[in-house]
């Protein structure tokens, strides 16, 4: 298949997954905040932390109130990772690769784009916002289902999957981060609020699981009360839950089978597997996750670099050709 087409469908997968993840995050986070007592230090700025766009945000906004943060993450044209911006790019990539994807998937991507475009409104109330987020998540799942069941599992399919699974692994790593103490000053034992937030630790981890649609799977798998180290282990190392990083990595490897010259990418994936598989979760939580998450995210980004170098860049191709 053409390198340029491979690149477009790969990004189609990534942007679809990015939009879905952002919608999940926004949905669950809103719900979680209403469970916590007023005055906890967990606030809307955490969402900006997760998306890693502090600098950009502060260029345009003075404070982290609900309205500004939601607008920034949902539809702000200044945020290239907003849900709407991701959908615009997903649609553009689908539109320009219609010769390789089933037409119903294109129509569904197009429909999702219009749903969001026509309903986005800075004055969107909480109830309608919730409804719209649910719709985005459901549509995104529908599109994924269509790819699985109506597209030939060929090389183009593999590239969509690579994009999706890599983006998913990246998002899960960010969520592990958010659940961890680094992002919640109250947890780091610096102040008196420790006792205040402790009973809510559960709630936070439960919501992290909910965000990934993994609460039920966790209960079945782990048979235990929800606790930080078990959730982190589940999200990093579980081989059966589709949004656990280990699972995503195995899916990447499966999809590499259909592609030529995949050795370097396999090596990059194996490295991430070692990082997540060998980590001692208990001591990790004691030390703090910051360093670990950084290493994890950089190594996930390396997989992307390898994919891009081997299959998308015409210079490399001319050498091998």
């Amino acid at each position: 298949m053409l390198s340029s087409v491979a690149e477009r469908v790969y990004w189609l997968g990534r942007y679809l997954e990015r939009a879905e993840n952002a919608a999940r995050l926004l949905k669950v986070y809103s719900a979680m905040l209403f469970d916590l007592p007023r005055g906890t230090s967990l606030d809307w700025s955490t969402l900006i932390d997760i998306s890693g766009s502090h600098e950009k945000y502060e260029e345009h906004y003075d404070n982290y109130d609900e309205k500004s943060v939601v607008h920034f993450l949902f539809s702000d044209s200044k945020n290239s990772n907003s849900i709407f911006a991701s959908l615009v790019l997903a649609r553009e990539n689908a539109r320009t690769s219609r010769e390789v994807i089933p037409s119903e998937t294109w129509e569904q991507v197009n429909a999702l784009y219009y749903t969001v475009k026509e309903n986005i409104n800075p004055r969107l109330g909480r109830a309608n916002r919730y409804k719209l987020l649910e719709e985005i998540i459901a549509d995104s799942q529908r599109i994924e289902g269509m790819f699985v069941s109506s597209m030939s599992h060929n090389q183009a399919y593999s590239f969509i999957e690579l994009g999706r699974k890599l983006e998913r692994a990246d998002m899960t790593s960010r969520l592990v981060d958010v659940g961890s103490i680094n992002l919640i000053p109250a947890f780091s034992g610096k102040n008196e609020e420790d006792s205040l937030i402790e009973p809510y630790e559960n709630i936070i981890w439960i919501n992290v699981l909910r965000c990934l649609g993994g609460f039920q799977a966790y209960r079945q798998q782990v048979h235990n009360r929800v606790s930080g180290n078990l959730v982190v282990r589940f999200l990093l190392q579980d081989e059966e839950f589709p949004r656990a990083i280990s699972f995503c990595l195995s899916a990447l490897v499966d999809n590499l089978e259909r592609l030529p010259n995949d050795d370097d990418v396999k090596r990059a994936v194996s490295r991430v597997k070692r990082i997540t598989g060998e980590v001692d979760v208990e001591s990790l939580l004691e030390r703090g996750l910051l360093e670990f998450i950084d290493e994890l995210q950089i190594s996930i980004a390396d997989i992307h670099e390898e994919i891009s170098r081997i299959w998308f860049s015409p210079e490399t191709i001319q050498e091998t050709g």
Binding site: S3, S4, E99, W311, I317, Q318, G321
Partner: peptide, 24 residues
Amino acid sequence: CELVQGSDLVVEDDHVFMKTIDGL
């Protein structure tokens, strides 16, 4: 069929090739 742009194609020894993930 593949949909290509000029930049996806290259001529070598008077034959036309397209740049794919497998090479030319």
